[in-house]
Write a protein that binds this DNA or RNA. Structure first.
Lengths: 338, 338
DNA sequence: TTTTGGCACTCTTCGCACGCGAGTGCCAGT
DNA sequence: ACTGGCACTCGCGTGCGAAGAGTGCCAAAA
């Protein structure tokens, strides 16, 4: 087990390294933090910490830098979440309240997160399994062509063209719309398939083809709606990665363009609070030199989506976690109001 | 005036520099291109080209690199557009044909462009002044709350909540929907305001407030719809910018996040064909070391939006222009079909 | 007049040696 | 268990010299 002071030394190393971006040595440590012991003692502690794998030295005779494992310990045991100051919280709230619709909320959230953390922000659109259908609309576009519009309780709208096997009359369409809505309005996505299963039976045989075409399109749309989208921003902050960044930045940019990767990344975090994944803890290897700080957010008490930031492992964890948590909280409020 | 051979020298310099990314000297030039003259002659020509401002040398006693003005001449007079090969064209077509809806078309186009040109791709969503309204839908959400859904001929759907001053009945809503559609369906965005101007007059006095609220929301939505959106991709290709890129890449990333900037950028290109803006020709100073190759595309003969790529001034102009033109052409086809 | 070969000159780049300084590890002493 | 001292290791910056690429200019040839 590591003594209390050794943990303090680790904490000091992380803090200094995050600040200076340079390997930190024993002497500098004792000067900047008053640990009450001499450099020699600190050296012993550092040697122990290195044995345990919490810190490492880039080359012999250079200072130490924290390893992923070191950051992990720091995050878990040595540092809390740094709450936002009152003015910051007000600024967040004000900025988010200016949003006019869902897209705008997400867009503003991304900007805000990127600005607060000076890192790359990722925000998932709210939706998914807990979503319910608010309304389904059917419009006739051409004799054998209809448009299906799906509106969800989170305010998202999805449309799809439906090519019918046979011409369809306005009356039938209106009838179908009415029946459809009476069954699925207010219901969860996941419940819809079983609710509409027997719907074609209520129609004339020659219309059933059309009805089931419409229904299967609806089901498809629901599934696609489940495949969540997300928005990213603040990629310019990637330039903060460090001097060696040309090699690091490329896989990160590639990963950020693969929405699938990001969604998986956010999805992995099951923790109810703020989740931190450090360096190699990220499954995607392009992100092995980054840390991801994420948290769920949602309108009610339930989390309906995730948001977070991607930055260098050498980041200000307490501050970032604080910002992410605060933003999630206020976005939740905004969503609940609208 | 510049002699024919001097232009050939400039062309050779541009080609070599684009290929090698290194300043090109007189000797290397005569070796790689058989100009039929000696290095000394080429040196004289280079001196003349430098006097005219087409090329420059980074330091004394290094090779020459083209200036923005040099690239400009190259693009205008010395190089044509390199057409895509037949297999490439087939690949483009196949890839785009897999798209399921408008978003997907745009997304695929971005990927395609980024891959073909190995640069950052920008695609504007089709829409704008020539767009027409396909359908307007009104849904009751709560007693005094309605949802307005706007569907355009390009397949885009926009929705907006409307808070009414007074409760509104289903019947009134249906009535309004019918009247609204009979007036605006099929009409251009720009014509809508005058078409609905006198609509409230057909309603009971106590309903007029609600009606005009709905109408003004509709007009707002149309305006916002006009503010076009765009999608970008291939940012990982920014790492191709060169060795010195840390400083260059940052303003570019910042510019790419400002959709307004990009829209202005694309909007500036009035040329009916492929437009190339080189280096300082770009108004936004973050993009002063990039070139933008763009072109309009559209479903019919008319261009409804733009697409293009952003890359280093040192780029393969003929190839890039060919790729951009080809993609625009096939996207137009796809849009026309759907 | 244009082209060419030659030549001197300018700079950048690279390798190398050197010294400095930060930092380490170890050990003996408190 | 902590501390001070000491020898050792490297990385990093500096200065110098050689190499090489490229230029500009000039006088001769076409």
């Amino acid at each position: 087990m590591l003594s209390e002071r050794r943990l303090q030394v680790l904490r000091a190393i992380v803090q200094d390294y995050v600040g200076t971006e340079e390997p930190v040595g024993s002497k500098a440590l004792t000067e900047r933090h008053n640990l009450g012991v001499s450099p020699a003692t600190v050296r012993n502690d550092m040697a122990a910490l290195e044995d345990e794998g919490f810190i490492a030295q880039p080359h012999t005779s250079a200072g130490r830098i924290p390893t992923d494992k070191g950051y992990r310990l720091f995050v878990d045991k040595l540092a809390g979440v740094k709450p936002m100051t009152a003015p910051e919280r007000r600024a967040i709230q004000n900025f988010l309240e200016g949003a006019v619709d869902l897209d705008d909320v997400v867009a503003r959230t991304v900007r805000l997160l990127a600005q607060l953390t000076r890192q790359v922000a990722v925000v998932q659109y709210p939706s998914l399994t807990r979503s319910t259908v608010r309304h389904v609309e059917l419009l006739s576009m051409a004799p054998a062509r209809a448009m299906l519009v799906l509106i969800t309780d989170t305010g998202r709208v999805e449309q799809r063209m439906v090519d019918c096997p046979a011409p369809i009359g306005e009356a039938t369409l209106a009838d179908l719309r009415a029946r459809l809505n009476s069954r699925v309005a207010g219901r969860r996505f996941t419940d819809v398939p079983s609710l509409v299963e027997d719907l074609p039976e209520g129609f004339d045989p020659e219309e059933r083809g059309t009805v089931s075409t419409v229904l299967s399109t609806l089901l498809e749309t629901l599934v696609e709606e489940n495949e969540e989208r997300l928005m990213i921003g603040g990629t310019a902050n990637l330039t903060r990665f460090g001097h060696d960044f040309p090699l690091v930045i490329r896989p990160v940019l590639e990963a950020l363009e693969e929405q699938v990767v990001l969604l998986k990344l956010l999805g992995e975090a099951k923790d109810p609070g703020v989740t931190v994944r450090i360096g190699h803890e990220n499954a995607h290897e392009g992100l092995n030199s980054t840390s991801v700080v994420s948290v769920g957010y949602g309108s009610g008490g339930e989390a309906v989506a995730k948001l977070g930031v991607v930055g260098p492992t050498r980041m200000d964890y307490p501050g970032t976690m604080g910002a992410v948590r605060a933003v999630a909280r206020y976005v939740g409020q905004i969503l609940a109001e609208s």
